[in-house]
């Protein structure tokens, strides 16, 4: 034990040097292609678009209320200062004002609740799907079963350990790359069943516009109708232990022909 520790200490000096180099490289790289993403990733599913529009609607409503309320407050802070000779008014209530500022929020909330309800009803309707994918969360990998196509495989992180520990430069898709991609057809309603084998996980690909927990003993349902071909990356979103940060999801959305070819390849392979 002692010996082991000493050996580790001996190896530490170049280790630290390597880390400093890695820090410098990362800093340089981040300046190189800074993203500064402020908002949702571009949605690529039907419900993703609905969700995005709803998100922007509430965001703007909040911004407008924010500007109005704090516009009034900061005006007051500026204008009603003692140092400007403001003398305190005596009023301490006004039924009219209080009724108004109870009614207005109610109206705003109702106008927000209507599109939210419509969107939610749509998102939760998993009927009339074209195919079903069953996803099972494990510590710390995903298993994908294509129930209609008899395809079944596991998918684990493929980022090398050296990149995580900083002894090797990080690749473009650092932590968002896996050995076996999920392949889904575009233009099809895909029902996704979610469950887990050990602890609770959550299957989340931001661009697909939905997220749900994968819970042992439960089967949850979501659906996606992908409109654009492409590769979409996501992660487990529910703390599931030590390697929770290391179980990404990669979805390849392809045309129907390519999908059929992929399925055939999986079976022969």
């Amino acid at each position: 034990m002692m010996l082991n520790r000493r050996r580790q200490t001996a190896g530490r000096v170049p280790d630290i040097a390597a880390r400093i180099a890695a820090v410098a490289a990362a800093l340089y790289a981040s300046v190189g292609h800074a993203e500064w993403a402020l908002n949702f990733q571009k949605p690529v599913t039907t419900i993703g678009h609905v969700q995005y529009d709803l998100h922007m609607l509430i965001l703007w409503v909040c911004c407008v209320i924010f500007v109005v309320v704090f516009g009034v407050m900061f005006y007051s802070l500026f204008a009603h200062r003692k140092s400007k000779g403001s003398t305190p008014a005596k009023f301490s209530h006004s039924t009219k004002a209080e009724v108004i500022w109870t009614i207005i929020p109610i109206v705003i909330l109702v106008t927000m609740a209507i599109p939210s309800t419509q969107a939610l009803i749509r998102m939760e309707d998993t009927t009339a799907s074209d195919m079903t994918l069953k996803v099972t969360g494990y510590q710390w990998k995903w298993r994908y079963e294509y129930l209609d196509h008899d395809v079944d495989f596991y998918s684990t992180l493929s980022t090398p350990r050296a990149q995580i520990e900083g002894t090797e430069p990080k690749g473009e898709n650092y932590l968002l790359e896996v050995d076996n991609h999920v392949v889904l057809p575009v233009g099809k309603k895909v029902r996704i069943l979610l469950t887990a084998a050990d602890v609770i996980h959550a299957w989340w690909v931001p661009a697909l516009g939905t997220k749900k927990d994968a819970i042992p003993g439960y089967v949850n349902e979501i659906w996606v109708y992908i409109e654009e071909p492409g590769t979409y990356r996501g992660q487990c979103a529910e703390l599931c232990g030590k390697d929770h940060g290391y179980m990404p999801i990669v979805v390849d959305a392809v045309s129907e022909e390519e999908f059929d070819a992929w399925v055939a390849g999986q079976k022969s392979g």
């Binding site: 407050m73 007051s76 802070l77 009603h80 003692k82 140092s83 003398t87 008014a89």
Partner: peptide
């Protein structure tokens, strides 16, 4: 409450 007060 702040409105038309005499604030410091």
């Amino acid at each position: 409450t702040m409105w038309r007060g005499s604030m410091t």
